[in-house]
């Protein structure tokens, strides 16, 4: 029955093939029965991701098809374009936030000292540390998934 349906509808055939493929891969991974060795490709190329024709659903499907291991796929409920949190990405975001805050506060420290209170270095250092802590809480938590 499925064969005849697939025969009549090529789109349904590719969908059902993809679904069974994904299911099998997930089951293998859950049982710890990987095919051995790293997957052939670890991510969708940036050119494909940047393509305007890619809807979030298609992107998510491509992530499956392009042999991402199951544990790297976004958890249920996450946005379609949510990325996996790695130590590197987390540190990058934290340092970027601290850097931006440092530069902005260094530029406006004169005004802060003149019209508010305190020494300038306190504003700069305190603000940078605060921005880094904020970035850590915002970007390095597993329960926060956002579409980027």
């Amino acid at each position: 029955m499925a064969i005849s349906r697939s025969f009549n509808n090529p789109a349904a055939a590719s969908e059902s093939y993809m679904a069974s493929d994904v299911r099998a891969e997930r089951e293998r991974s859950l049982r710890g029965l990987g095919e051995g060795g790293p997957p052939k490709c670890s991510k969708v190329s940036s050119r494909r991701r940047a393509s305007h024709r890619l809807t979030p659903q298609r992107f998510q499907r491509l992530r499956f098809v392009y042999c991402l291991p199951v544990d790297e796929v976004s958890p249920p409920g996450a946005g379609a374009l949510a990325t996996k949190i790695t130590l590197r990405s987390c540190l990058l975001k934290v340092f970027a936030a601290a850097g931006v805050a440092f530069l902005a506060l260094a530029a406006s420290s004169d005004n802060l000292v003149k019209y508010l209170f305190g020494p300038g270095y306190l504003w700069i250092v305190g603000g940078s540390i605060l921005a880094a802590l904020w970035a850590y809480e915002s970007y390095c938590r597993e329960d926060v998934h956002e579409e980027r």
Binding site: L105, N111, L112, Y115, L116, W123, L130
Partner: peptide, 11 residues
């Protein structure tokens, strides 16, 4: 002055 208050508000 507004910029100073804006930066403080941002923090």
């Amino acid at each position: 002055r507004g910029a100073a208050y804006l930066a403080a508000l941002a923090l």
